[in-house]
Amino acid sequence: MDIIKSSRDNLPVLQLKGRFDAHEVEPVNAWLAEHTGKGEARIIVNLEGMNFIDSTALSTLVRGLKNCRERNGDLHICSLQQPVRVIFELTRLDKAFDIFPTEEEAAKGF
């Protein structure tokens, strides 16, 4: 999996590409801990280019979401490709996250 760290409108953005499974959660956990442990945590996770996500990876994102909301912030997901969109739907996590078509809209959605 490729991990690209950037920012948009002063919001931290994590872009993940490829297959996101339990082998890959550690760097994502570290990034989430860094950006959800202080202040009003508002972050974007861009999943453009991701074609598979497993339950461990989903749990990592859910934990990140929870940490953000505990600090009155949020974790916005954007740019889901169809396989990952279907996985979010089947696991009903599409109801838990605010999901946006583009990174720009995810940033404006705060």
Partner: peptide
């Protein structure tokens, strides 16, 4: 239970197309 739903999602999405 930990793995099946994601796999079903990936398969259903791809093969339906």
């Amino acid at each position: 239970r930990e793995r099946i739903v994601a796999t079903i999602g990936a398969i259903a999405s791809h093969v339906s197309d």
